[in-house]
Simulated assay, not measured.
Amino acid sequence: MSAQTSQYESDPLPTEIVDVVVVGGGAAGLNGALMLARSRRSVVVIDSGDPRNAPATAMHGSIVLDGAPPTEILRRGREQVREYGGQVVFGEVAAAEPAAPTADGDLRFSVTLADGRTLTARRVLVATGLRDVLPEVPGLAEHWGHSVVHCPYCHGWEVRDEPIGIIATGPASIHHAWLFRQLTDDLVYFTRGTDLNPETRARFAARNIRIIETDVREIVNDDGGALAGVRLTDDTFVERRVLAVATRMQARTEGLDGLKLPMEDLPDNMGRRLASDIAGTTGIPGVWVAGNATDLAAQVGASAAAGALAGSHMNAMLATADTDAALAVAQRTTG
């Protein structure tokens, strides 16, 4: 269990077989668990207590919940899952793998936590989210989620009219520039060795986006510790109050190697995701995936919706398995 989870109340890990174990306690995992629990499925959420949006003070872009603190949304989500009989266990998954199926062919999965406790489930929903990989620029990471942002829809309104700099990481940063130009008239694009073709340069010039090709040495703070600007390798200082960066997004898969889930690389080195199909199904029978682990661009609302869809689909498949098992018993009895 990580140190961050100690502030939360954890349910006991059940010793009996449960219908579904959800790996990940963010919006996708909790909404999937909610759908399952409301269908009277036994469901356990394993939550590492380390959500992607932990550095943010507010969540935006979701009607009704716009501006709510992420911690409060998750607290209320856990509470609602528990209201329907679901359980939330704080801990980290060390291993997850298929176990021997039952005599009638129903699937089983074994999940082991970092503290050695184990759980057996009929199905698995992976909702582990992703990790944002920042470029290795000294001083950048300390402002992540505040003055260093990645999403114009999550943070854009809050940084409007500020002097903004784009820390380029690849082709996705060009798209970033168009979106952040909507928010400010003072935008600088730091190429950091990435390519800009003549057409893009002309389009930047037409929108008054300044291009700086001298490499970035470090991020500079003011006397109060706030972001003040960028120091270039030629010692030039460029004042900026906000920096936008297109991170490399990496699905979190720690402890899940035993499930052998298929993965896919996104173009232009944008990231790596868990491959999924309709309703979050994967190439592994009995395992679904939802949220940022498979849809790297999904915001909180979209992740929650994906979790709900996956949860309802899992319940439908479990209902079919339950009926198949009941029919087999009935036929053996009458036979």
Rank of each mutant, 00 (worst) to 15 (best):
D161N: 14
G165S: 14
I164H: 06
V188M: 08
G165I: 13
I166Y: 03
A172V: 00
D185A: 15
L187M: 08
I167K: 01
G165C: 14
S173R: 01
A168F: 11
I166A: 07
H175D: 09
S173F: 03
P171M: 05
S173A: 13
A177E: 01
I167D: 00
R160M: 06
L179I: 07
G170K: 08
I164Q: 11
V188W: 04
A168Y: 08
E162G: 09
W178P: 00
D185N: 14
G165L: 12
T169A: 09
V159D: 03
L183A: 10
V159L: 08
I164Y: 08
H175W: 06
W178N: 05
F180Q: 02
V188S: 14
P171G: 05
D185H: 15
D185W: 11
A168M: 09
L183E: 07
V159R: 07
D161I: 06
I174K: 01
L179H: 12
L187V: 02
P163L: 13
G165R: 13
E162V: 07
I167R: 00
R181T: 03
D185Y: 10
T169N: 06
I174R: 03
S173N: 08
A177D: 00
V188G: 05
D185C: 10
R160S: 04
I167A: 10
F180S: 01
H176I: 09
I166P: 04
H176D: 14
S173M: 02
